[in-house]
Design a protein around this nucleic acid. Structure first.
Length: 575
DNA sequence: GCCGTTTTCGGCCCGACTGTTTTCAGTCG
């Protein structure tokens, strides 16, 4: 069994948690966290890098951590971790999930009370045993209990697509408050991360106290977690945590920059500041003599370090600061670049709208090409089309095309099922009749790596297949994607010229940003589709575009930004 | 534990807020 980059990253985060509780110097734990984060952003399997003796090329991975990766990949175990788990009870890391409980308090509860897991902590708090510990009191004990309750109510991370509409409503509310001059979404929401923990908002105001007061007394607020001059934090009734940060307008640029993050991006930027004898915070940039420079605009903050403005989607410490320094930031794709949607469903399979309704909605959004790609017969749950029904559908598509004339080009396609053995659901002569063929994995996703990779490769090598739909098959937050050998998948994509899809449904966002970036670097064509099952889902395109932007992808790599003639020519040539 | 156009050793980002404290530790982002 081969450990994935994600699994390795989880192990190093776990080591960091245990080392922190143990009381190891902070920089050691930070080193493990940095290595974990790098592994998550890495498109090449660590196992491949190990084989080539290139593990230390991973940022934040040196001698010690590379040896641990090798040991894990070779034996599946890690002596260092096993020894650590003898010293610190492994279940103790549960305590770190509780708000306001960090490594020091977890260690305190363990050493003084023998607490080793969440249930024991809750019991100790209920028995009033926490209040008498050093540095603790009745209020702290109550906060721990409330934190445990909040943990039970709240899912860990939510999907961007579920959070964003509500966040935009709250932003509108904030902008309408008296005394608020400017306000924006910040944090992972502004960076368009696929999943969101807490919600961060920033505002510019000269009357922060009033703004904070209004914020914490909204009817949706369940409880106030903290409230000061510059910052307030609340838990909403639905379990969501929201932070609001306020500075006067002349400091808004540094505030927005700071709260947007990511944390790692900010650390890099502050290192850069230090080298120039400056100190960056959410308040200002300070010179070494203490003189403050104030920035109302975020662009000016970056300019102060000689950098162009960096789009928030890139701020993950994945090379964006060196790229900005060299003036080599990518020209990112925009939603307005999108001309076609090549993956949609109608009532012919499991969609809720007719071909005509979907086409009209697509025209309304300015699409020039729309592919109707209902499921093939094999996917029983989605009422896939038999060959006979597929041919009937062509007639209706032709009729709708006639009615709509030149407003849009309709294509007939299929989202065809890849069987467990890699064969496809329709015979080749039927596939040849279609304008576009998207092959997707929906079933038997748990096959082991060699099997499912060979299965996908077989489908990719069918010359009628134009696109691989949502390649990993993941459904967030619960279903992991297939355990594919991405080296082979990407190599096959390059060899066959097939396009890989970024599915824009917020629960998919698949390809993810890590592999989308690698694919684009390899010159593999990408396509961003909504996979819409209803007219309003055609608007979800922006989520797919956000993945491409986070993957440093420009419009040229994405075939549905191309002029219609070029796109149709590409499809025709593939046949 | 990592890393180097200031360094192979000595650094490693910065501030708000809370609760427990009489000046600070812990947590968080």
């Amino acid at each position: 069994m081969i450990l994935t980059n994600q699994e390795l990253a989880d192990i190093f985060d776990r080591i960091a948690d245990l080392l922190e509780i143990k009381g190891e110097v902070i920089y050691k734990t930070l080193a493990y966290r940095k290595a974990a984060e790098s592994l998550r952003g890495l498109a090449e399997d660590a196992a491949v890098l190990q084989g080539q003796n290139r593990l230390t090329e991973i940022p934040g991975v040196g001698k010690a951590i590379s040896e641990k990766i090798s040991e894990l990949l070779t034996t599946g175990k890690l002596g260092f971790l096993e020894k650590l788990e003898q010293e610190v009870p492994p279940t103790l890391t549960e305590l770190l999930q509780v708000p306001d409980v960090g490594p020091r308090k977890a260690a305190l509860f363990w050493k003084q009370l023998g607490v080793t897991n969440l249930a024991e902590l809750e019991a100790a708090a209920r028995d009033g045993k926490l209040r008498s510990l050093p540095g603790m009191g009745e209020k702290s004990e109550k906060r721990v209990l409330e934190g445990i309750e909040a943990l039970k109510r709240r899912p860990k991370r939510r999907l961007l697509g579920n959070v964003r509409p509500a966040a935009l409503r709250m932003l509108d509310w904030l902008r309408a408050q008296p005394g608020v001059e400017k306000a924006d979404l910040a944090g992972s929401l502004r960076r368009w991360r696929a999943t969101i923990g807490d919600l961060d908002l920033v505002a510019a105001s000269n009357s922060p106290t009033e703004v904070m007061q209004a914020f914490t007394s909204q009817p949706e607020v369940l409880r106030v977690l903290g409230q000061g001059e510059n910052k307030a934090s609340v838990e909403l009734k639905d379990g969501m945590n929201v932070q609001l940060w306020v500075q006067p307008p002349e400091r808004y640029g540094t505030l927005l920059q700071f709260v947007t993050g990511s944390k790692d991006h900010n650390v890099r930027l502050r290192e850069l500041a230090q080298k120039k004898g400056l100190s960056l915070s959410e308040q200002s940039i300070k010179e070494s003599n203490g003189t403050e420079r104030l920035y109302a605009e975020e662009t000016a903050v970056y300019a102060a370090f000689g950098l162009p403005w960096i789009p928030p989607e890139l701020r993950e410490d994945r090379g964006e600061i060196p790229a900005a320094l060299a003036n080599k930031l990518p020209n990112l794709i925009e939603v307005s670049d999108i001309r076609a949607d090549l993956h949609t469903h109608t009532t012919w399979s499991d969609g809720t709208a007719s071909i005509q309704q979907m086409a009209e909605a697509a025209i309304h959004l300015g699409r020039k090409v729309l592919a109707i790609t209902d499921h093939s017969g094999g996917l029983g749950v989605a009422q896939g089309l038999s060959i006979e029904r597929l041919r009937q559908q062509r007639l209706e598509i032709n009729q709708v095309q006639e009615r709509l004339g030149e407003q849009i080009v309709l294509l007939q396609g299929s989202e065809i099922e890849i069987h467990a053995d890699g064969s496809l659901d329709y015979p080749d002569d039927v596939l040849a009749e279609l304008d576009i063929v998207i092959a997707s994995l929906h079933t038997s996703l748990r096959q082991e790596r060699a099997v499912i990779t060979a299965r996908l490769l077989r489908a990719m090598r069918n010359p009628h297949v134009d696109v691989i739909g949502h390649p990993s098959g993941r459904l967030m937050p619960n279903r992991e994607g297939a355990d594919l050998d991405w080296e082979q998948v990407l190599a096959a994509a390059r060899e066959t010229g097939i396009a890989l899809e970024i599915d824009a449904l917020p629960m998919r966002l698949d390809l993810d940003e890590v592999y989308a970036r690698r694919a684009a670097e390899m010159g593999i064509p990408l396509v961003i589709d909504t996979d819409a099952h209803a007219p309003d889902q055609l608007e979800l395109m922006e989520y797919g575009v956000s993945v491409a932007r986070r993957a440093w992808v420009g419009p040229e790599s994405v075939i549905n930004t191309w002029e219609s003639e070029r796109l149709l020519g590409w499809l025709k040539k593939r046949q």
